[in-house]
Write a protein that binds this DNA or RNA. Structure first.
Lengths: 231, 231
DNA sequence: TCTGTATATATGTCATACATATTACAATAA
DNA sequence: TTATTGTAATATGTATGACATATATACAGA
């Protein structure tokens, strides 16, 4: 008969560097560090923790990767404001992500676009509306398929720009490759003839000019229907 | 009179490790590495690049941080599927971010919630609706302010759960601290009496049960009005 | 005031040795 | 044979000491 082996929890499997990382994070929070504040020297940290400078450097390089620590020769290290999206951008590669996550991202792009109406009505200006107008006109004139796609993207990008929300704009931009990848792999559930009433860019613009947020949301839903019904 | 000094771009200010990182990224893409594939040994990489193992390790530790490389003793290193949100979560700290970004995030949370309607109608089930029902009932019974807040959060969390989109759910969860922080710092533009017609959780549920996506979007807009008018 | 020089300093890089966990396989006992 | 245990090989993890390099500071000279 064997021992009740399940009771035996595995011991700390953290590497030295992991532990240092944890300690440093505690240290930063506890000492209430703010962007711009200088950090102790590498050697001092190593000595204080009783570890080698090598290990400290590896731990610190992780924070550098996150963007919350910067270091320059002789100046030492300082706390910096991280760029929230910077790291995420590097991971937006269809080869790296799993299907489930990519599907999630596909939906997320749609969700954001559908939810954008409210903010657009708050931020729209005559100038921005006329820019949308320009894009639509260029779109109407062209027959080239590739150009139409270009203007399509331009139109939606302009909407984000009008939102004045830089984070959302960047977020959308980095979602794009995944969105396109998923889109090209999904089949429509409906017959092609169901797209008869799809709202156009002009419909959206007219709604944005003279309509209501509620109306705009509905138009956008109609406009994106082609994608939504793929979900 | 000064030179047109702005035209003078700074020379390569990349560290050795930066260069190694770039080379490795090229290598990974060019050789078409996929999750699960093993990487060459550290020493081999170092020799191939003509640099020290230390530098290679620092570069690789960055990829480990991103979550696209994992390494175990003797097993060597392998490409792994990164967790897209993992790094971002660590940065969601009001002390680290600047006001602009936090405002963006505040809006983003609202945008997502406003755009969620469509997907909810696609994914709702009798079971999930009755769970919402339960939460509302508990909410109605309580008079405690803190409990009401708890059920409020629970209700909205349940909506995300119904969406079936794990990425959005996690995303929202990590946006929360920033959202609350910004919210507590913003003042309402309107007089308090303007909230007379605010849609309740029950309104949302009824709409979700018997209404339409369009109706739900409007109800949600009304429900979140308190926040929206703070934008 | 500006420019060049010297020096001190903290990070960046390197070479080397050893520690440690994991694998594969041989050795041993049942 | 079968299962457990020991052992060597291996790749990553850690430590140490040395040197390289960029930057700040101070000071000298024009």
């Amino acid at each position: 008969m064997s021992m009740p082996i399940k009771k035996l929890k595995p011991i700390d499997n953290l590497t030295q560097v992991d532990k240092i990382e944890i300690r440093l994070e505690e240290f930063l929070k506890h000492e209430n560090f703010n962007p711009g504040d200088p950090l102790p020297k590498e050697i001092e940290i190593a000595q204080a923790l009783g570890v080698s400078r090598t290990a400290v450097r590896e731990a610190i390089s992780r924070f550098r990767m996150l963007g919350i620590i910067e270091s320059r020769k002789n100046r030492g290290m300082v706390i910096t404001r991280p760029d929230v999206l910077n790291n995420m951008e590097r991971l937006m590669d269809p080869k790296l992500l799993d299907g489930e996550t990519m599907k999630d991202i596909f939906e997320m792009r749609l969700v954001i676009e559908l939810g954008l109406g409210e903010i657009l009505f708050l931020r729209k200006t005559p100038e921005s509306l006329s820019k949308l107008e320009e894009i639509i006109e260029k779109e109407d004139k062209t027959t080239n398929r590739i150009d139409r796609l270009k203007y399509d993207i331009e139109f939606h990008s302009m909407l984000y720009q009008i939102s004045g929300n830089n984070t959302i704009m960047r977020f959308q931009k980095m979602l794009m490759p995944i969105f396109d990848y998923v889109d090209s792999g999904l089949k429509s559930r409906q017959k092609p003839n169901s797209e008869n009433k799809r709202a156009t860019h002009r419909d959206l613009l007219e709604e944005l000019k003279h309509g209501t947020p509620s109306g705009f949301r509905n138009q956008m839903q109609s406009h994106l229907w082609y994608f939504i019904e793929k979900i």
